[in-house]
Amino acid sequence: MDSLYIGQVVELSLSKRKLELLKANENTERGDLRLAEKIDDDALQTARKDKIIRIRELIRETGREIHKMKGFVRFKLLGEKVKCGYMKPEHEVGFMVLDWFAKRFPGKVIVLGNKEQSWVSIYTEEGVSHEKSGSLESTLDELGEELDMEKKKDLTEVWERYYESQYSERRKNEELFKKNMPEKYMKRAGNKAERKFELQKLDKFKS
């Protein structure tokens, strides 16, 4: 049947992805999740009620963190099989970020984390397998017992020189930089080169 008839019970629900994003947000409350069960994507987009707008914002915030982490984290290569890096997201987005990287680099173990926790993911013909674990260090130690993880020289220096070559002093726009690359995301992704360069520029500017 194509059209609805009066009295028909319509199941409203947000798309799976949106629900995942909502659940992952640290600030989501039980009331938000209950309300989210009663609305669909359309209602979310056209909402005028503050409670629904709040849900929209929570979803947007989680999505933004995932997007920024995909761009801002950096990997070091350990042997041929492992790529690791720092990440300390505010929301529960670990697997969403990790699985995306795993699909980008099939057969590689992707490890991201910090002093408290880490996430590990791999994509093979069996699909994605992932795991949440303790500190980044302990996870790498454990993986090191199984895999050859000789540290390769990383590219920080190459990247720093390249990054600086792209800057145009005549177009300096601190406000736009801060909007696009907020300090909080640089910190959560452990981004060093850009922060260092930005501080140097600010110093020059002040002097």
């Binding site: 995909k70 099939p106 013909e125 990054y163 800057y167 601190e174 930089f177 360069f197």
Partner: peptide, 20 residues
């Protein structure tokens, strides 16, 4: 699976210079 990398439909920014 025999590859390195993939693409993104919406694009991704990896960094921004101080000119924004």
């Amino acid at each position: 699976l025999q590859r390195i990398g993939n693409t993104s439909r919406g694009g991704i920014c990896h960094s921004f210079t101080p000119d924004g």
